[in-house]
Nucleic acid binder design. Structure first.
Lengths: 344, 344
DNA sequence: CCGGTTTATGTAACCGGTACCAAAGGAGCG
DNA sequence: CGCTCCTTTGGTACCGGTTACATAAACCGG
C-alpha cells in the first residue's frame, strides 16, 4: 500500500549524507511534526507518554534538528559576528576571547572575520551582517557608510575603539586621561623632549592618544612636538624608524602608540648600541604579555572586558531590552616598568 | 481589485524590521521569483533588459538575499567551525588567524568556539557542528565519542594537535624530533640533570614531547627522569612549581612544555634569587612573542600554517575532492636564545 | 448524562531562498 | 507557411523547521 500510493513522496535520495528530518521522526513515532517540534522544544503541551515515543524515535533515528531550518523559521541566527582588521598580534585575541565567552553564555555562536587589507572587505562585512543577529566591529576596518548600511538594515552594531556612528553602540578605552598620566609621569621624572610614535590618521585610538599627549605636554609646559612620527602597529614598523630617530638626534622619550611598536623600536635601537632606558626612554600602550617580559612601561587596557562589554551591549539591542545607543568608555591604567627610566 | 481578492496574503506585519524578500522584488520588477533568483545568481539565462529591471528593483527596495533561506535551499552553510579549549594565550590566536584567512579566501565564514572548561562543552560542540560544513577541533577539547559522533553525522572534521580519530583528518607538529634536538643541544652544552615540566596526560603534544625527551636523554646516556613535573599551560602554573623546584634541589635544566610555563617559572625563580640561565637553564615551546623578549630558548611551531592547513584539509573534504583521511605533520625548529646558557 | 473547559494532537501555512519542468515566443529552415 | 529548436520566463515543489488554528479527547461539576 505504501508503494502503491501515488502521493508517496519519491524520497529524493540526496547523494551521500542521509539527513533525517523532523518528518521522518514524526512518521516513525506515529505522531505529527507539530508534536515532534513541541517535544523538541520542551513544550509542556505534550503528553509524557507521547514525549517518550518521540524521544525514542529521535534516539533511534539519530535525529539532529537542522539549525538552518530552525533559524529560518525563528527568524534569528543565534549568532553574532565580530570584525577585525587583523587577528595577529596579542591584542585582538583577548578582545575576541571576552566577546566569545559572553556570547556563548548568552547562547549565541560567534562568527569571526578578519579583513586584513583586502579590498573586498566591505563586501565581506556586508555578507557577514547577513549571517548574524548582531555585529561588533573593531577600529577602522570598514568604511562608515558600510556600517551605516548595516545599521539601517536593522542589524545591531557595536563599534570597538572607533568613533561613534549614528545608531550604533560603542565601547572604547580612555585615551586622553591615560596619555596625560603617561606624560605626567615622564615629566615628573625630568624628561622634557618627548616624541610620539604612531599615526593618528590610522585609528581613533591613536588620534586620541596623540591629542591627549599634546594637551598634557602643553599643560606641563614641556615642548609640544609639531607632529607625530607616523608608523603602523607592528614591531617592524617600530624597528624601521630607529635609524631615523638616531640620525635626527634622540629625544628623551619615545611614547609609542602600542606595545609592538615600542618593543620593535627598542630592539632596533639596541642593535645600534642605543640603550633603553639609558640613552632614551620608551613607553608603549596595551600591556601585552611581551611587555611584561621586556620591562616596558605602558598603559594597560582591559581588552577582554572590551570584548565582553561589546557582547553584552549587542545582546541588549538584539533582545530588544534597549533601543537607545549606548557609548561605554573603559578606564585604563598606567603600568610603570623600567623602560621609562629609573625612579629618582 | 487587490484588496478585494480573498487570496491576497494578509501581509503579516512582523513587528519591527521589515525584511524585503525575493517575492517583493519579483512583484516590484514584474517578473517571477525564479527570474529574480537567476538574476541574483548571475545565470546567463536572463535577458539583459530583464536583468536591468530586476537590478533596479533590488536597488530600490534595498534587497539583500537572506543567507538563511539560501543556505537551507542549497543545503550548505558556507561556514566552517573551529573549536579551542581556551582562546587566551598567544598561541591560539595565530592558529585562528591562519584558519580564518584561508577559510575566508575559500568563501567560508568562520565560527569560533572556546570551550573553556564548561561541562556543557560537548553539547556546544555538537551544536556548532550543526551550523557548519566542516569543523576543526584543537587538542583535547572534546571527548573522542563526540568527535566520532560528528564524523558519523557526515560533517568533515580535522583535528589539530590531537591523536588521530577514525575518519577525521589531522594536522599536528613534529614533537619527538624537536624534543630530541632540544635535548641534544642541552647535552652538547654540558647539561646532565634535565627535568621536564608539563603534564603528558593533558595533551597529545605534551605526551609526545615528554616521550621524545626521555628517548633522547636515554640515547645521549644522560639521566632519564622517572616522571615529568605536572603543570598546566599558564604562567601561573610555571610560577607555582618554582618553590618546590628550589627546595628539591635545582636541576641543570627545566624543559617546559610551553613558553608560558617557562616564562612564569623564570620570573618566579628570579624572585627567589635564582638566576636563569646562571643557576638553572630553562627552555620553552611554541616561540610566542614574549619568548623573544625574554630571551627564551624554545621550539618554534608554525601555528599559523597549522590553522591554514586545517582549513585547506577541510575544504578538500567538504567539496568532495578527497574522501580518504589525511594526517599532516608540520616540522618545528629549535630556537636558541640565552635562557639555556652561554655557548661554549 | 450533559455542556463547558482543559489538554493533546494534527493540518497546513509560513520563514526566504533554489531549481526543476513546462510553456511561451522568436528565429531559422525546408 | 508550418515546424523544429533555442532562449526566456513562470509556476511551484522543495530545503527543514515553527506555530496559529482547528479539532478531538478527557475531565468536571451539576
Amino acid at each position: 500500500m505504501d508503494s502503491a500510493d501515488p502521493k508517496s513522496p519519491q524520497r529524493r535520495r540526496t547523494s551521500g549524507r542521509a539527513s533525517v528530518t523532523i518528518r521522518d521522526v514524526a512518521r516513525h513515532a506515529g505522531v505529527s511534526v507539530a508534536t515532534v517540534s513541541r517535544a523538541l522544544r520542551g513544550s509542556d503541551l505534550v503528553h509524557p507518554a507521547t514525549r517518550e515515543r518521540v524521544d525514542a524515535a529521535i534516539e533511534e533515528l539519530r535525529f539532529t534538528p537542522s539549525q538552518l531550518g530552525r533559524s529560518l523559521a525563528e527568524r534569528r541566527h543565534a549568532a553574532n559576528g565580530i570584525v577585525f582588521p587583523d587577528l595577529s598580534g596579542p591584542y585582538y585575541a583577548e578582545v575576541v576571547l571576552g566577546y566569545e565567552e559572553v556570547a556563548a553564555t548568552l547562547g549565541r555562536s560567534v562568527l569571526i572575520l578578519s579583513t586584513h587589507n583586502r579590498e573586498s572587505a566591505d563586501e565581506m562585512v556586508l555578507d557577514l551582517a547577513g549571517r548574524v543577529d548582531g555585529l561588533a566591529v573593531f577600529g577602522r576596518t570598514v568604511h562608515d557608510d558600510v556600517v551605516a548600511e548595516i545599521v539601517q538594515r536593522g542589524v545591531p552594531v557595536v563599534l570597538m575603539a572607533r568613533t561613534e556612528i549614528e545608531g550604533a553602540d560603542s565601547v572604547r578605552t580612555e585615551n586622553v586621561v591615560a596619555a596625560a598620566s603617561v606624560v605626567d609621569h615622564l615629566v615628573t621624572h625630568g624628561h622634557r623632549r618627548i616624541t610620539f610614535l604612531g599615526d593618528p590618521v590610522d585609528s581613533t585610538d591613536v588620534a586620541e592618544r596623540w591629542a591627549g599627549f599634546r594637551g598634557a605636554l602643553a599643560q606641563a609646559g614641556a615642548d609640544v612636538p609639531e607632529q607625530a612620527i607616523p608608523a603602523g602597529f607592528k614591531e617592524d614598523d617600530g624597528a624601521r624608524v630607529a635609524a631615523d630617530l638616531v640620525a635626527g638626534g634622540l629625544p628623551d622619550v619615545v611614547v609609542c602608540a602600542n606595545d609592538e611598536l615600542a618593543l620593535g623600536l627598542t630592539v632596533a635601537l639596541a642593535e645600534q648600541g642605543i640603550d633603553v632606558p639609558g640613552d632614551v626612554a620608551v613607553t608603549g600602550w596595551d600591556d601585552v604579555m611581551a611587555a611584561r617580559y621586556a620591562g616596558l612601561t605602558t598603559v594597560r587596557q582591559p581588552m577582554r572586558e572590551m570584548g565582553a562589554r561589546a557582547a553584552r551591549l549587542l545582546d541588549a539591542r538584539i533582545s530588544g531590552d534597549r533601543s537607545e545607543p549606548r557609548h561605554d568608555v573603559l578606564t585604563t591604567q598606567l603600568v610603570v616598568r623600567r623602560s621609562c627610566g629609573p625612579h629618582p
